[in-house]
Amino acid sequence: MSIEITHIRMSGGSGHEHIVSYRWLNPADRATGTSDKPTMVAWVDNPSNSAYVGSGFQRAEVGVVRPQYGEPFLRTFADGQWNNNLLSLPRF
């Protein structure tokens, strides 16, 4: 299953590691929901699932970053580079 992440909620800072929850849309059935960071990281880690930000040529896939210190977090990956598309999303 593939979902589009549409909004983020931040806490305690402004970097990707400070995103605490995600609002998403399943384009297949138009279902929406909100998931906390641990749930979304585990979901994206499942090879049957994928998440992205944007659409068309602006679409960027979401992957899991595992820093040497700290908890894993999500970040977008496009054109062979990690980028900041998640941080550009509206807040909720």
Score class of each variant (00 low, 15 high):
Gly70Gln: 08
Ala28Met: 10
Ala51Trp: 04
Ser11Gln: 12
Phe77Gly: 01
Met10His: 03
Gln68Lys: 10
Thr39Met: 04
Ala31Met: 12
Gln81Val: 14
Asn85Ala: 15
Ala60Lys: 12
Arg66Lys: 15
Thr32Arg: 12
Ala78Asp: 12
Ser11Asp: 11
Ser14Ile: 15
Ala42Trp: 00
Ala78Thr: 10
Arg9Gly: 07
Ala51Cys: 05
Gln68Trp: 06
Asp36His: 04
Glu4Gly: 01
Pro38Lys: 00
Ser11Trp: 07
Gly15Val: 10
Ala28Asp: 15
Ala60Met: 06
Thr39Glu: 09
Thr34Met: 08
Ala42Cys: 02
Arg30Met: 12
Gly54Leu: 04
Ser35Trp: 00
Gln58Lys: 13
Phe73Ile: 08
Ile3Asn: 03
Val53Ile: 12
Glu17Leu: 06
Glu71Ser: 12
Ser55Cys: 02
Glu17Trp: 03
Val44Phe: 00
Ala60Phe: 02
Asn26Ile: 06
Ser14Tyr: 05
Pro38Tyr: 00
Leu74Glu: 07
His7Ala: 13
Arg9Lys: 15
Ser50Ile: 03
Gly54Met: 05
Ile19Ser: 10
Ser11Thr: 05
Val53His: 02
Ser50Asp: 13
Asp45Met: 04
Asn49Tyr: 03
Ala60Val: 04
Asn46Val: 04
Asn46Lys: 06
Glu4Ala: 06
Ser48Leu: 08
Phe73Met: 06
Ala60Ser: 15
Lys37Glu: 08
Ser55Gly: 10
Thr39Asn: 05
Leu74Lys: 07
Arg30Phe: 03
Thr32Asn: 03
Glu61Gly: 14
Asp36Tyr: 04
Ser88Cys: 14
Asp29Leu: 07
Asp36Ala: 06
Asn84Gly: 14
Val41His: 00
Lys37Asn: 08
Phe92Trp: 14
Glu61Leu: 06
Pro90Asn: 12
Ser48Phe: 00
Ser21Tyr: 00
Gly13Cys: 03
Gly13Asp: 05
Leu25Lys: 13
Arg30Val: 04
Met1Ile: 11
Tyr69Asn: 11
Gln81Gly: 05
Ser48His: 01
Thr6Arg: 03
Gln81Lys: 14
Pro47Ala: 01
Ser88Met: 14
Asn85Gly: 12
Gln58Met: 13
Gly15Arg: 13
Arg23Cys: 11
Gly15Pro: 02
Gly15Thr: 15
Phe57Asn: 14
Trp43Asn: 02
Ser14Thr: 15
Phe77Asp: 05
Gly63Thr: 09
Val64Trp: 02
Leu25Phe: 01
Asn84Val: 07
Phe73Asn: 02
Pro90Glu: 13
Ser14Cys: 09
Ser35Val: 02
Tyr69His: 07
Thr39Pro: 07
Thr76Tyr: 01
Pro67Phe: 04
Phe77Thr: 08
Ile8Val: 15
Asn84Thr: 14
Val65Ile: 14
Leu74Pro: 07
Asn83Trp: 08
Glu17Val: 10
Ser35Asn: 07
Gly80Tyr: 10
Ile5Tyr: 05
Glu17Pro: 03
Ser88Asn: 15
Leu25Ser: 06
Gly54Arg: 08
Val65Trp: 02
Ser55Gln: 11
Pro72Val: 09
Arg23Tyr: 08
Thr6Tyr: 00
